[in-house]
Design a protein around this nucleic acid. Structure first.
Lengths: 155, 155
DNA sequence: ATGCGCCGGTCGATGTCGTCCATCTGGCGA
DNA sequence: TCGCCAGATGGACGACATCGACCGGCGCAT
């Protein structure tokens, strides 16, 4: 993981469909070298996948909500996570410090679907309660932030 | 936005670097047709970009936290959003219903950086208070969910 | 120092892909 | 019925991906 790797990562982070030839031009190497580096980054799970970013409204998922999950006393955390994973509307799932053990980002098309989803979540074994807040709008999401890990800003 | 478009979107959602030729084979069209459809999807902002998914720890961003922002009375919401947008550590920003007007997902490398970030956020004009919760682990994130079959055509 | 092996780079060749253009077809309105 | 247009096809050509062969620098043991 040197500077060239970091540049490649950053380029692919914002334009994942860029060709190897174009990447090569931008980092000053040849196409096969870049290809090998990218393959290695994928092998080492630095790059874990490539995603097209979709406008959720365009695919009928206009409602975004965040759901906090309070687990019941004695519930096995990982079992709860496994159960949540079965629910496709849950786009992201974080195991949190604090009263709510999990925080989920969910997307649905209608309020009725959201109601149904929250009901399903609250009935999962190990789930003691839910707290849902609706996102009125998404200002931005998944913005790639500048990579500069070799200069860890102090305070 | 027909069934073929939806299949293309779904394919690119999970494998954004797939070639047009491969897409064409999978949806049963020729490469130029697929290319034209993808171009149109991009033009209509159904597809808004292509992102490589990076393991945050590999680029020195091992700490994920969620920060709720309470705005001061009389603050202009959009000004607050603009100010937050200047801060690169904020990966996502949602305008929320509820007491906290904004919810931010932030990533940093160290607790010291998180402290500094929260301090900066709390000092922004219009920001009355913050509530930070740390993600102990990310179970999953940005998982593409199956496209609803009965979608209202947005075009 | 010398020689060896490894890592990572370049180069060249070949098959595939992206992209442009001409052409064709099916549906719709005049 | 005719003409028009959106969208598909097929061919051509330049660019790209990919593979093997080769090459240079580096660390290390002899």
């Amino acid at each position: 993981m040197d500077d060239i790797d970091r540049r490649i990562v950053q380029l692919l982070r914002s334009q994942a469909r860029m060709s190897y030839a174009e990447l090569a031009r931008r980092v000053g190497l040849t196409s096969p070298s870049v290809q090998e580096r990218v393959a290695k980054l994928e092998r080492n799970e630095v790059i874990t996948g490539y995603r097209a970013e979709i406008n959720p409204e365009a695919i009928g998922l206009g409602i975004t909500a965040l759901v906090g999950i309070v687990t019941t006393a004695g519930a096995e955390y990982s079992d709860v996570a496994d159960a949540i994973q079965e629910i496709s509307e849950v786009e992201s799932c974080y195991f949190m410090a604090g009263q709510e053990s999990y925080l989920l980002k969910v997307r649905v098309g209608t309020m009725a679907q959201l109601e149904h989803l929250v009901t399903r979540l609250s009935r999962l074994p190990g789930v003691g309660g839910t707290r849902t807040t609706i996102a009125l709008s998404t200002k931005w999401e998944g913005r790639p932030q500048p990579t500069d890990p070799d200069v860890p800003d102090p305070v």
